Structure formats: structure tokens, C-alpha cells
Simulated scan of single mutants.
Amino acid sequence: MRLTEFWKRMNAHFGAAYAESFAADHVMSELGGRTVNQALDAGWEAKDVWRVVCASMGVPTSRQ
């Protein structure tokens, strides 16, 4: 998954303003105690980060 697709999905689920805030501020244990942005910066694949977000935040299957 490309980062553009990742952000498209984040924006579609959370809304553009909250997606940015969530990615910057929400620390997730499933990402090793990192935020979404930190995980991506640390080299995590966008598809893996998206899977964690989906599982943790209850993203409907139709949006995964």
C-alpha cells in the first residue's frame, strides 16, 4: 500500500482533521508504543499500520 492510499483511507474513516491529529497524538501499543506517524517514520509498512488502525479502532470491513 502506498502512503497516498493509506492517507486516503485514514481521511475517509476519521475525517481529514481528525486523521492528522490521531496519527500524530494517539500512541498505540500494537505499534510498539508509537503513534501512526512515528511507526511510519520508523519504517513500518503503511499496510501494516493500516491493519493495526483497523483492528484497534474498529474500522468496518467495508473500509479496510
Rank of each mutant, 00 (worst) to 15 (best):
P60A: 01
A19R: 00
Y18S: 06
N11R: 02
V36K: 02
R34A: 01
A39P: 14
A12I: 00
L3I: 08
Q64C: 13
S56G: 09
H13E: 12
A24H: 04
F14L: 11
G33D: 04
A23K: 01
Q64M: 13
G43K: 09
M57D: 14
A46C: 06
A55W: 06
A46L: 00
D41I: 13
R2F: 10
N37Q: 15
W50L: 10
C54Q: 00
L3Q: 11
S62L: 13
E5K: 10
L31F: 04
L31V: 02
R2I: 10
A55L: 11
Q38T: 09
V49K: 05
V59E: 08
Y18L: 09
A17P: 10
Q38A: 15
V59L: 08
K47N: 14
G15S: 01
S21W: 12
G58S: 03
F22W: 01
T4W: 11
F6V: 00
Q64A: 09
G15T: 02
T35G: 07
D25T: 15
G58P: 03
H13I: 07
W44R: 06
F22Q: 03
T4P: 04
A19Y: 05
N37I: 12
D25C: 08
R51N: 14
M1S: 09
R51V: 07
S56T: 11
L40Y: 10
D48R: 05
A24P: 01
W44C: 05
V53R: 02
A23H: 03
G43L: 12
S29Y: 13
M28C: 10
A17I: 13
A23R: 06
W44M: 10
R63C: 03
E30H: 01
S62Q: 11
A39I: 12
L3P: 00
C54E: 07
W44A: 06
N11L: 04
A17E: 15
N11E: 08
C54A: 02
F22S: 00
F14Y: 15
H26F: 12
N37S: 14
W7D: 05
M57Y: 11
F6T: 05
M10P: 09
H26T: 14
A24D: 09
M1T: 09
T4D: 15
N11P: 05
R2G: 12
V36M: 01
G43R: 08
F22V: 02
M28H: 03
E20A: 04
G32F: 00
A55E: 15
F14G: 04
V52D: 06
L31C: 05
V27L: 05
V49Q: 02
A17F: 13
N11A: 06
P60I: 04
L31T: 04
V27N: 03
M1R: 08
V27M: 07
R51T: 12
R34N: 01
V49T: 00
S21T: 13
W44P: 03
V53C: 01
